[in-house]
Nucleic acid binder design. Structure first.
Length: 568
RNA sequence: GCGCCCGUAGCUCAGUGGAUAGAGCAUCUGACUUCGGAUCAGACGGUCGGGGGUUCGAAUCCCUCCGGGCGCGCCA
């Protein structure tokens, strides 16, 4: 465990606004709201334009309706109270009736206020009722100092409700190497994991794969056929990687697998699929993606997870038999048709293992499950969540993130792929061309819901103008400055105290750098990562401008945070 | 036919009901003899697919239409 994490600046200011509101009520200048449903949540955001201050709140406009008074009038009252907060050193210490009701967040914000001083410098009221707040210079300096002391820990956030989250992604079956179509899911999943971890959650990265069944038998049959020079089955696998496997297949294993037939296909297939799985793990390592758990579908049957889940559904009375098959009454939860769990042949469907997997994951103690799926799986979302609900789990704790298609394009022409025919570009080949950082940035900076074009030639050609290099260059400059400073025997000041008050450029950079925890928090709550890359670009831009206008000096302040960002 | 996702600058894409809708690329004009010019300052560029509605306020929420993607198996 490390030291308590200071709340983001935004949260501290939000608490200051809340205190101002409470004081206004206590003083009788504003009435208390009797109807709890009318109490608005206090929002504090960065205004779109710098002349509107550092932070702004729309609370007065939110209160206009319940109070039946003009937003401007309310804003004036709140502004007066906020100004008083700025002047009163002991603003927080006084009796506070609402303290119990608002909980730990408020307590943490209050504690931070005691530590760092009041955040409010000055307040302006702007039509139609915004409260524009400028941060107190001493507060910014104190907060920046705290961020420097936090070092690598800066940017981490204490989640209000920490969860143990299971994120399952990639999960491509080991019948061939990862291809470029798998890239997006891999990056999206890993970035989400990083953001969740930074936001104070426990994260488990999980890869789910099918190591038995028809696909694997076919793979085995194909490998054996090539090795022995017999024709490849019609629905078999082709491609260079199959030939390589055939060449590497140990003679003893083939001999021990016996006569041609299902048993031999199974033995050879399992060997081949494990080889491929190991290759996939290596490819993902090149991406910087490492899984905590490799979960085989077969294990869900051998350990009884699937049967237990079925029993659970049976106990809930949502299972029936018809036409020799076992069905889940998915329509009872709004689905448009019921779903088969076990076929009349006695085999389970994919859906069968899906529900077993859900229960098995919760059985391992996870609070929240995230699945990163391609949009083509969206038809299965409802039934899995329905089954989870029927088994007694919270529907909202089973979350599917559907990643939209990527059209891979080379010089304007779409690149088509088929694993069966072996015509595809592998993930390794893609990365050899465009680089891991550029690819990670590309996928991280786009919403997972939007279908995107990835032009391989363009990605290479523009690599010098790519935002990722822009951000990395900022980092390089920072390192260079630090190096130069060390060479000349300069050391960073112990404190920024007083150094930011009258320098708008430095002050702006510090405030921007202090936003990192807010960015992380937002990304984690909405499960989107593109805000992080956007922020990194913005911070780099601010730094480059700073670099131009302000020679050296307190380089140490932005360095820690910017360096971290360049790595994200 | 039903369901889900998408439509924002020439291109690729941001924008969880807030103020004058942003960034990169592309195009054009400028800038250090000093910390890395992979940089900086500026210009150009928009019926937020169309039309209604909700409200103090809509790219964002609701309805509808147009256009594109995906899904609707006892497949995996």
């Amino acid at each position: 465990m490390h030291a308590p994490i200071s709340p983001p600046v935004r949260a501290i200011v939000r608490r200051a606004v809340e205190r101002a509101w409470e004081r206004a009520i206590a003083a009788g200048t504003l009435p208390a709201l009797s109807d709890a449903g009318e109490v608005p949540t206090i929002e504090v955001d960065r205004p779109a334009h710098p002349e509107h201050g550092d932070l702004a709140t729309n609370l007065a406009m939110k209160l206009a309706r319940p109070y039946r008074r003009s937003p401007l009038e309310i804003a004036q009252i709140l502004a007066a109270e906020l100004e008083r907060d700025a002047e009163a050193e002991g603003a927080v210490a006084g009796p506070d009736a609402a303290r119990d009701a608002v909980g730990d967040d408020a307590a943490a914000a209050d504690a931070a206020t005691v530590l760092l001083g009041s955040p409010v410098g000055s307040v302006d009221v702007a039509a139609p009722g915004f409260l524009n707040i400028r941060l107190a210079p001493a507060f910014v300096e104190a907060a920046a100092d705290a961020a420097r002391r936090a070092g690598e820990e800066f940017g981490r956030v204490a989640a209000p409700r920490p969860q143990h989250v299971n994120v399952e992604f990639v999960s491509a079956n080991p019948t061939g190497p990862l291809h470029i179509g798998n890239a997006r899911g891999a990056f999206v999943g890993d970035l989400l994991c990083r953001v969740l971890a930074a936001a104070g959650h426990r994260v488990t990265r999980e890869y789910y794969f099918n190591d038995f069944g028809q696909q694997v038998w076919n793979l085995g049959a194909s490998v054996a056929a090539i090795r022995l020079g017999t024709p490849i089955p019609e629905d078999g696998y082709r491609g260079d990687y199959v030939r390589e496997l055939a060449a590497e297949l140990p003679e003893a294993l083939l001999a021990g697998a016996g006569e041609p037939g299902p048993e031999r296909d199974r033995v050879v297939g399992e060997w081949a699929s494990e080889r491929i799985r190991a290759g996939i793990e290596a490819s993902l390592a090149h991406l910087g993606v490492h899984f905590d758990v490799w979960k085989s579908e077969g294990s869900l049957y051998t350990d009884g997870s699937v049967e237990r889940a079925l029993e659970r559904l049976r106990a809930a009375g949502v299972v029936y038999e018809a036409d020799g098959a076992v069905w889940f009454r998915s329509t009872a939860y709004g689905d448009d048709k019921d779903r088969v769990i076990r076929k009349s042949s006695g085999d389970y469907t994919y859906f069968g293992s899906d529900i077993g997997y859900v229960a098995e994951k919760f059985g391992r103690g996870f609070d929240h499950l995230v699945y990163i799926w391609g949009v083509d799986h969206h038809g299965t979302v409802a039934r899995v969540r329905n089954a989870a609900e029927a088994m007694g789990f919270a529907r909202d704790d089973v979350e599917m993130i559907l990643v939209a298609w990527v059209r891979f394009v080379r010089d304007g022409a779409e690149v088509s792929m088929s694993k069966r025919t072996g015509e595809f570009i592998t993930l390794d080949e893609l990365l050899a061309e465009v680089g891991v950082d550029a690819a990670r940035w590309f996928f991280g900076s786009r919403a997972h819901t939007s279908a995107i074009d990835f032009d391989i030639e363009l990605a290479k050609k523009q690599s010098n103008e790519n935002p990722v290099y822009y951000v990395q260059y900022a980092h390089a400059r920072i390192c260079s400055i630090l190096r130069k400073a060390a060479d000349s025997g300069l050391t960073a000041a112990d404190s920024l105290d007083g150094s930011l008050a009258d320098d708008e450029v430095s002050r702006g950079l510090a405030i921007l750098a202090l936003r990192l925890p807010e960015v992380v928090e937002d990304a984690a709550t909405v499960h989107e990562t593109q805000g992080v890359t956007a922020y990194a670009t913005e911070l780099a831009t601010a730094f480059h401008a700073f670099y131009r206008d302000r020679r050296v000096v307190d380089a140490a302040d932005p360095a820690t945070s910017a360096a971290r960002l360049a790595l994200v």
